[in-house]
Amino acid sequence: MSNLVRSELLKIRTTSTWWWLAIGAFLSIAMAFPLNAWLFNTAVEGNAEDVGLTGDAASAPAQAANLYTSGQYLGLMFVMLIGILMVTNEFFHQTATTTFLATPRRTAVIVSKLIAASLLGFVFWLVTTVIDLGAGAIFLTLNDHGTLLGEWEVQRALLLNLMAYAIWTVLGVGIGTLITNQLGAVITASVLYLIGTQVVSVLFFMLSSWLDSLAVLKWQVLWPAVASQVMITPGENEMLPAWWVGVLVLIGYALVSGIIGVLLTRRRDIS
């Protein structure tokens, strides 16, 4: 198995895709950090309501957590795309043949892709978090708030963010095995991630006003991108489920897509 994981990591290292996606992840930090810094200032100056922040979410630790995970929204999409490409590349470049000749045990191949994907998710998390920690600590210290890194809420956000990176990469591998067409998989997943979330929230908002129930909004957590937001959002209210619900939903998706991926790949004719 370690041979296979090594081979999968080598596959990633020996092409330039990860490099482009890493640049994308870096740019998304560059865009998100100033916005989150502005949100932090707005919230701690007592104008949280102006930007739609209430309760716990407006507290300094919650906003620090948000700042320290800047770039997560697009970063997660990029690691998901890496996961997808890990599978679809094999079909696009017809290397599935060589891969399954070297290892006819297909379950082992997919499992090693899942392991390699989560390792890669870890690396992306590590690098983005180091950048966020550096920039965030400087920003907060300069504004006389201290680093706020001692706050459990901040630490928890960082750790859950790690989990999000690993799970989204794994989810990407699962999507890749479901949709082996490279372009199809990349476009479907990106559109669902970027636009699907807004569509889902609009639908739930309509449903909620129709049923005259705010609690309905909680169920948005079933949508993976929402689940991953919930996971790193502190606090809980009648519209927002607890963070661990997001964790469970995401793990559920990762498990289901991984299992379906293994089953499909075992049966598929490579021709």
């Binding site: 596959k11 020996t14 330039s16 895709t17 470049h93 017809q94 290397t95 043949t97 060589t98």
Partner: peptide, 11 residues
């Protein structure tokens, strides 16, 4: 099996 079974961007 196929002449073209390698990733195009890999050496």
């Amino acid at each position: 099996l196929e002449a073209s079974s390698a990733h195009k961007g890999r050496t």
